[in-house]
Design a binder for these strands. Structure first.
Lengths: 106, 106
DNA sequence: TCATTACATACCTTGACAAGTATATACGTA
DNA sequence: TACGTATATACTTGTCAAGGTATGTAATGA
């Protein structure tokens, strides 16, 4: 697992951009207004997100419309699997414990 | 969603520590040997992981045995959900497209 | 053509973080 | 008690990334 994608979405402003784009595709100016940062700051974060392929960009006259591309997040989803197994094993253990406890009452 | 957990696991050495501890709980010295960093470096990363509650620590004589605590990762799992929905919607759209294409052959 | 809008990028400054060295602390053993 | 082991932490240094200002660039409209 490459840690890079975590550093990309670990930056608070970038995370907020992703969540804003989840609602709808937006132009840079819309994101600037929504997130309250300066335009160069937003543009630079969008560049990072573009290079991580977490967003796509299409041109509309002078505007650039950015849209979310969630596919790279599938890597995180897959990475989580062994940890998910742990939660479930813990859950199994809890259930086992509860079963045992119930049995004591019988 | 707090971006902090992403910055914690976005550091390559910390990510490797997590994956090493997934195999088995280990003392600091074991991790130093396994990951090839210096002891202070590993100890400092373990401190960050401790503060994020991604690892627990128990004392065994002079040694500190660190074990994985995967529970905080559930937050990431939950955060992924709306993005997962997108993958599935895209999949639906693909299936729809394939259905339509099939129909054209009929 | 000139001004305006929308965005990207270059440059600079600052702050955070990671790694290394040196040191402190706690435990075990002779 | 003295020493070795295991780990944490203080301190320093270098690197990198984020934000701001200024500027470049492309498209629109008068």
């Amino acid at each position: 697992m490459d840690a890079a994608i975590f550093t990309v979405i670990g930056e608070p402003t970038r995370l907020r951009i992703l969540e804003a784009l989840r609602e709808r595709a937006q132009a840079v100016g819309d994101l600037v207004a929504a997130l309250g940062s300066t335009q160069p700051t937003i543009s630079k974060h969008l560049k990072v997100l573009r290079e991580a392929e977490l967003v796509n960009c299409r041109v509309d006259a002078q505007r650039r419309i950015y849209e979310l591309n969630a596919e790279p997040l599938q890597e995180i989803d897959a990475w989580l699997q062994p940890y998910r197994d742990r939660w479930n094993h813990s859950l199994d253990a809890l259930e086992q414990y509860l079963d045992d406890t119930d049995r004591e009452d019988e």
